[in-house]
Design a protein around this nucleic acid. Sequence first.
DNA 1: CTGCTTTCTGCAGGAATTTACACGACTATG
DNA 2: CATAGTCGTGTAAATTCCTGCAGAAAGCAG
Lengths: 253, 253
Amino acid sequence: MLTSQRKTLILDILRRDGQVIAKTIADDFGLSEDTIRRDLREMAAERLLKRVHGGALPLAPELPDFSARRGVSPDVKRQLGAFAAKMVRPGRTVFLDGGTTTAEIARHLPRNFTFTVVTHSPTIAGELEHHPTAEVILIGGKLYKHSMVATGAAAIAAISLVRPDIFFLGVTAIHPVHGLSTGDFEEAAIKRHIAQCSAETYVMVTQEKLDAASPCHILPVKAVSGMVVPSSITEESLAPYRSAQVPIFTVSD
Amino acid sequence: MLTSQRKTLILDILRRDGQVIAKTIADDFGLSEDTIRRDLREMAAERLLKRVHGGALPLAPELPDFSARRGVSPDVKRQLGAFAAKMVRPGRTVFLDGGTTTAEIARHLPRNFTFTVVTHSPTIAGELEHHPTAEVILIGGKLYKHSMVATGAAAIAAISLVRPDIFFLGVTAIHPVHGLSTGDFEEAAIKRHIAQCSAETYVMVTQEKLDAASPCHILPVKAVSGMVVPSSITEESLAPYRSAQVPIFTVSD
DNA sequence: CTGCTTTCTGCAGGAATTTACACGACTATG
DNA sequence: CATAGTCGTGTAAATTCCTGCAGAAAGCAG
C-alpha cells in the first residue's frame, strides 16, 4: 500500500467515524502503530487533523449531533465486527449477510491484502465503497427493504454460483433447541441457502438475541461452524451451546 | 512493447485501480523498475499523474471520485431529478443508472402510487430504502467501485431479464457527433445494454457535460428518446441536438 | 550496406525514504 | 501514586529513488 494512499484512507475513516484510533488502524492496515503515529503526526503538521492521545480527531469540532449518531454503533457490535474481520485471510471469499452487526465487519475488514466480499445487501456494498483492496460481488434480486437485502429466485440463483469460504450470518434470535431464526420467511430461506453454499458459517450473537426465538427458522445451532459472542455473556448461558459442540469465540472488551 | 503504448496502459490501470505500484507494473510488463519509474517521472512532468513513493496516484486526489462528485451543482441536479421523477407513471418499470444525477431522481420519485425501480447501483438502492411504495429490483455483479455499479457478465445477464419502460441514463459527456460517452469501457457496455433492453432512454445533461467527449462511447445521440436539460443551457448550444431530431425537455428553475 | 546518431533499456551504486523495534518519557485513570 | 497504555526519538534494516553509464535497437545520411 502506498503511503499517501494510506493517509487519504485515514482521512476517510476520520470523516466516517469521527475519530481514528492508532491501534485499530494499525491492525486494519497490518502495520505497526509507529507507522500510523508517524502518519498522524505528519498529517497534524499539515493541518489535516487534530492529534490527540490515542489517535486523532477531525479538525473542525463537528456538530454534536453528527458525532453522537456516529458513536452510537454500540461498542459491543463494533468489537464483534473487528474480531470477525480478523478471521478473513488473503485471497479468501467471504459472504456478508445484511444487518448492522455485519456492517461492522465490513468497516473493520483488513486493508492490507486482497480478498473477495460477496453480499446481497446494498448497504454492506456501500460500506465497502472506499475499501482499497476488497473485490465486491453484489448479489441481485428483489429488494426486501426492511432488511435491505436482495431476495427471491434471482438472488438464490446468483448465490448458488459462488462458493464462499466464510459466511457471516446475522440473525435476530438463537436458541439451543429452536436454533437460529429471523423475522421473515423469505429472508430465512436466503440465509439458509447461503449457509449451504458456504464452507463455514459463523453467527454473530449479542446478549439480547441469546435464548430467544423468532418466527422463521433458519438452521439448527449445530449447523454453524462457530458463534462469535461478547465476553459479557456469562459462561452459564453459553453452556447449552457448548454441549451442542459449537465452537464459541469469545470477544473480550 | 512500445513506450507510448506502455504509458497508455499505465494510465488505464491508474484509472481502473486508482493507484499504480512501480514494482507490480514492472513485473506485469516484464521490465525493470527503472524503466517504469522513468515513465512515471515523465508522465508526472506532463501532469498525467501524481508521483508518490512506491508508484503513482491519479492527479487530483480522485478527480471525479463518486463521493467527491456528490456536491457539484447540486441545485441543478435536484431540479433535473425532480423533473425526471415526474415522468414515472403508476405500474411502470424504471431503470435507474448509477451516478449523482440519477440519485436525485431516486430521491424525488412519487410516493403516492406503486411502480418498479431496477438499478445496478447499491447506492441508488440505498436511496430507496425508505420509499413507501417503490418495488426495487437490484441487479448484481462485480462491483465497479469508482462508480458504484455492478458490472460484468452476471450484470448483463440479469439486465437481459428485465424490460424497463424508462431508462434514465447517466453519462459524463454528450457530443453531437461523438454521442454519449463515459470514462470506463465496461461501464459503457453495461449502459448500452440497458438502453437496448429498455423501451425508452432518457439522458440527463448538465452544462459541463454538453459538447464534451469521454474515452468510451455508449450510444449515438439519436438513440435516446429524449434529453433532460436545465433551462440555463442556451438554445444555441442545443441546436445541434435539436437538428438530430432528439426531443429535449427543458427544466425551468 | 555502412556508419553515425538517437532513443530506449537495464545495471550499479549512493542517496533518500519508509518501516519496525527498543527504550525512556509521558499521560490517563483508578 | 501506581499501572497500563501511549508517545517520541534514535537506530537499523529494507525498500525505493535517482544519476550516470553502457549496450541494444531503431532511424537516418551517405
